[in-house]
Design a protein around this nucleic acid. Structure first.
Length: 187
DNA sequence: GCGGCGATTTTCT
DNA sequence: GAAAATCGCCGCA
């Protein structure tokens, strides 16, 4: 698989991260429009793949267009899309989306009413969509995943990544311009 | 509206 | 044994 929702997952992670903004992501019919992503690459000290393959990050070195799910701070799950050529070890972290489908289900899972806060962060997003370790290494072109291209033209903004302690100078965080559903505003 | 801190578990040194 | 691609609660302004 190379093309999905108009995106070439063999491209560098920064490019894929930019292209993913505006794409609609559904997991078992629940999801919405991706409004925030971050790129991680093999030659990137902040990336899980920086030190080579391991038990946790193995999916990052698998085929592009698949999911990489890991446990964050022992509490949350975080969802990545694997990209670049097979074996390169690059991925895109899905950080936030604008809820469109299955909002009632998301509210139940998050025990929260405010639509704006349902998916405004990588951990929140996985809780709302029901993403867990069970989704690790699954292909994105088959159920429970579903991707569809943006309906409208998209304006993308970029900035430094969030929550890391290395390579904080590279602007590899991407967002939908003006979106109120991002985890933190862009400036 | 902001900044500080604890929770919890996997991973790597 | 420390650190981690986070979150939500608390105190204070």
């Amino acid at each position: 698989m190379t093309q999905l929702a108009g995106i070439d997952f063999h491209a560098p992670s920064q490019e894929v991260a930019r292209q993913l903004i505006g794409v609609v992501l559904l997991v078992d019919g629940v999801g919405g429009r991706i409004v925030e992503t971050e790129a991680y690459d093999r030659d990137d000290p902040a990336s899980h793949s920086f030190s080579g393959p391991s038990e946790r990050n193995l999916a990052m070195f698998g085929p592009p267009g698949h999911a990489y799910v890991y446990r964050s701070y022992g509490i949350h799950w975080c969802l990545n899309f694997v990209c670049r050529d097979n074996g390169h070890g690059a991925g895109v972290l899905i950080r936030a989306l604008e809820p469109l489908a299955g909002i009632g289900v998301m509210r139940e899972r998050r025990a929260l009413d405010d639509v704006r806060l349902l998916c405004s962060g990588p951990g929140k997003l996985c809780q709302a969509l029901g993403v867990t370790r069970a989704h690790n290494a699954l292909p994105l072109d088959a159920p429970p995943f579903a991707l569809s291209p943006p309906g409208d033209p998209v304006v993308v903004v970029a900035g430094p990544r969030i929550g890391i302690s290395k390579a904080m100078d590279v602007p590899w965080r991407f967002g939908l311009a003006g979106s109120r559903f991002v985890s933190k505003p862009f400036r």
